[in-house]
Amino acid sequence: MPLLDVNDLTTHFHTRDGVVRAVDGVSFHLDRGETLGIVGESGSGKSVTCYSLLRLIPEPPGRIERGTAMFDGQDLLQMSPAELRRIRGRRISMIFQDPMTSLNPFLRISTQLIEALQTHQDISNKDALKKATAALEEVGIPEASKRVTGYPHEFSGGMRQRVMIAMALITEPDLLIADEPTTALDVTVQAQILDIIKQRQNDLGTAVILVTHDLGVVAGTCDRVLVMYGGQEMESGTAEQIFYAPRHPYTRALQKTIPSLQTKGQELYTIPGLPPDASKPATGCAFFPRCPYPKNRDPMGERPDLVDLGEGHCWAACGYCDSSAPIESVLAKADEAIVDPLPVEVETAR
């Protein structure tokens, strides 16, 4: 039995401008100790997927419409608030995107670190503080015993994210959800933070869901990958399958955007167009309007089926585009087609 088995998770936001389908029928599973990467560009529903698991989305306007999330045999989505509180912070912990605002500026680091311990365990202040200091040392904060009584504003961004990691792992949870833990940090600090997560994962045997829009991060850290777009699954599989044999046009295009995989001196590739407007009901393949592949036919509102390519490699098999060819040839052809790019109009009137 997997540690976490999510089925048909659907979260909508009912706003004044209409229903935003942030997550639209996503399924995935995760074994103990495993790392799952959820990848996609901004607005693809990665973060909302994670928040929905712990029911941290603001309700209203958000609502989990349907689906199940079986965690160790219990459905997270059907639990009472009291039951859920016993899971939060004890068995499932979370790290957030922005360490500058995710720590409470009014409370000491020590207070915030031992809070999860004292909420879930019967532990004395002294023991909890000892554990908190040890937790800070484990994430590489120098002079931990001195700094533990400091306030968040006395820490740098990278240090705060270390504190967040220490705080999330202090109860030795079964699952750690890291929602873009490195997005708000310097590139030099990003690698350190990922290393710390990986190292602590090895020490504790924690399963990790790593949300990111950086495919490079996924390659180095994840066992399995879920590629999302427009609140839907585009492709999923092991890291090797996704990197060496991507099947979905979106995965391929996303891979093309990794700067280090592109020829130096060449203009960096970006996927043309904008992420889909989630307030419009998704018809057919969400990526269809931006897909660089030659189009066969209009999707006419049919959602593509998830097709298993074997060994757990799934993709949203859209038949609307002819996606058999490798993306390089498609992009090369597209470049040839635009021989004379349209002159850029300089707006002088304003």
Binding site: L56, R85, I87, R88, G89, F96, T101, S102, N104, P105
Partner: peptide, 25 residues
């Protein structure tokens, strides 16, 4: 504030969130 979400994710009860995390500010 974001830190309220952090506290919720830690399993802290709502009353504690209000009185301990938010009251000072």
């Amino acid at each position: 504030q974001d830190f309220v979400r952090t506290a919720r994710a830690k399993g802290v009860p709502e009353t504690t969130i209000v009185l301990k995390h938010c009251l000072k500010g």
